[in-house]
Design a protein around this nucleic acid. Structure first.
Length: 232
DNA sequence: ATTCGTTGTCTTCGCGTAAC
DNA sequence: GTTACGCGAAGACAACGAAT
């Protein structure tokens, strides 16, 4: 009889260099082995062996393109696990610091493929307040009002429902210890906001910034009063 | 179009080191 | 002694540009 072996996963994630590479991949971007070796502060050949283990352990997926290999977190479940470990680790070290030291990361950041930080929390609360989503503790549901609202914004709810991934999923925020919105809808909101230019990604960081001019449209659309960072 | 040299990226091998 | 990690050296592989 085969029992789930959590030691395998724990040892894969627990090694400091691998943990740094996994955290770097929480940006949702695909990174090359060289980029990940720089993130982990190890040589490329050491990174290569670590990455092979992470791929074999089904924590990463890899796509070969020309001379490059692009590594990504295997799926949303892996990203969720890393986020929860970040949350737990910040709770354990609560006396010294909580969440990311970078104020921009605390205010708004990418959590794999959706919005986290204070902005993510405010978005989640505003959607719940407007009765667009319903927090049922064990799961988060899109309400009929929410479906109408997002259809008007251009979302094809029917297409999202056909996906294996849940439309709405709550994700415990590492810095705020409250829920933000994940799932295919959470992904859509981030992608849409970036495409419309409401939000900007800070280069080489997970941090997000509201566009100085168009950022208020994001807040207006979702009924939030985010007064955090704006793109300079 | 083909060949060749250069460059960049990644992997493999062998060895040293540290922890247990 | 065993195991895991890290690094240097060497080589494989792919892309690219220049020469033919």
């Amino acid at each position: 009889m085969h029992e789930p072996d959590i030691t395998l996963i724990a040892s894969l994630i627990g090694e400091p260099a691998r943990a740094r590479m996994l955290t770097a991949l929480m940006s949702g971007k695909a990174l090359t082995a060289t980029e990940l070796s720089l993130e982990a502060d190890i040589t490329a050949q050491t990174a290569s062996s670590h990455l092979a283990k992470l791929v074999e352990g089904s924590l990463l997926s890899v796509r070969k393109q020309g001379r490059h290999k692009y590594f990504q977190l295997k799926n949303q479940r892996v990203a969720g696990l890393i986020e929860q470990l970040l949350t737990l680790s910040s709770e354990i070290t609560l006396k010294t610091h909580t969440g990311p030291a970078d104020p921009y990361l605390r205010q708004a950041r990418v959590c794999y493929d959706h919005i986290a930080g204070e902005l993510g929390i405010q978005l989640y609360d505003a959607l719940a307040e407007a009765n667009y989503i319903e927090d049922k503790q064990v799961e988060t549901l899109l309400t009929p009002d929410g479906a109408d609202f997002f259809e008007q914004l251009g979302v094809c709810i029917h297409t999202l429902r056909k996906k294996k991934r849940p439309i709405c999923k709550s994700c415990l925020d590492w810095s705020e210890r409250r829920n933000h919105l994940a799932g295919s809808l959470g992904q859509w909101i981030l992608t849409d906001a970036l495409e419309r230019g409401w939000l900007q990604r800070v280069p080489d960081s997970r941090a997000l910034m509201l566009d100085k001019i168009r950022g208020n449209l994001f807040a207006k659309t979702y009924g939030i009063a985010f007064t955090g960072n704006t793109e300079k």
